[in-house]
């Protein structure tokens, strides 16, 4: 089963994302910050990373950068969940190795259609 790592410090957002993805048949691993996500991703290879940007302990951009540094995550799609409207966070994320982004607020359908596009 396709495994997705969902990272967000907001429980409600994380629950919503997880619920949506699980409902669509994906296997979901949750993490509340970048560090937790990094540790989990190292131990358990995932097929896609979906991460919030602004988080305590380790932010999403650092997470993506750290994961890209691992051999097993060189080509894994990694998407940022971002409300940063200014765009520089997106660019910062891209520079760190993010595949793309989903702009908050989004609804479950938008989330799923993007995920499906990326995973094919």
């Amino acid at each position: 089963m396709t495994k997705i790592l969902a990272v967000d410090d907001s429980t409600s957002m994380r629950q919503m994302v997880t619920f949506t993805l699980k409902g669509a048949g994906y296997d979901v691993i949750e993490a509340a910050d970048g560090q937790e996500a990094f540790d989990k991703a190292k131990g358990d290879q995932v097929d896609l990373v979906l991460s919030d940007v602004n988080m305590p302990v380790m932010d999403g951009i650092t997470l993506i950068k750290s994961l890209r540094g691992l051999d097993s995550y060189k080509f894994t799609p990694m998407l940022m969940l971002t409300t940063e409207s200014a765009g520089d966070k997106k660019m910062e994320g891209k520079a760190a190795g993010a595949t793309g982004w989903i702009v908050k607020p989004f609804n479950p359908d938008q989330l799923l259609s993007t995920i499906k596009k990326v995973l094919g």
Binding site: S10, M55, P56
Partner: peptide
Amino acid sequence: NTIFRAAHSIKGGSGTF
């Protein structure tokens, strides 16, 4: 940063919901 993060999460969540 902590204050910003809290406000940011509320904004993101309230928009989504």
